[in-house]
């Protein structure tokens, strides 16, 4: 994952000094799997192992959620997000929400 600003999941930015903080920023993305992927995953489920289709789906979704969070931070004039956390939750049958949040800060 690459972002236009610094993102860490620690409270500090190693090598930088946090001078200002603005508040919590969030990003979300809800995705549903499509029938084709579901069928392939169903077959794979028989033998176990990685469900590649789902890995990709959730990864794309997480990327988007984090991207939105960063967009919020940028709209506040921040140049870093610290203490990043991800949460994944099942919202409805076959749909999952990827949620990312952190604190928008300015580092020097």
């Amino acid at each position: 994952m690459q972002f236009p600003i610094i993102v860490t999941n620690t409270e500090t930015v190693p090598g930088r000094q946090i001078v200002e903080f603005y508040g919590v920023v969030t990003g979300n993305s809800v995705r549903a799997k499509h029938v084709g992927r579901d069928i392939m995953a169903g077959l794979k489920n028989l033998v176990g192992g990685e469900l590649k289709g789902y890995t990709e789906l959730l990864q794309e979704s997480r990327q988007e959620a984090a991207g939105r969070m960063v967009e919020q931070a940028q709209s506040m004039g921040a140049n870093a997000v610290v203490n990043l956390r991800f949460a994944t939750s099942s919202i409805a049958q076959g749909a999952a929400e990827l949620f990312a949040y952190g604190t928008a800060v300015r580092v020097e």
Partner: peptide, 10 residues
């Protein structure tokens, strides 16, 4: 949910 993709309504 039948088609997949981004569920914007949520």
């Amino acid at each position: 949910a039948l088609v997949g993709g981004r569920v914007k309504s949520y």
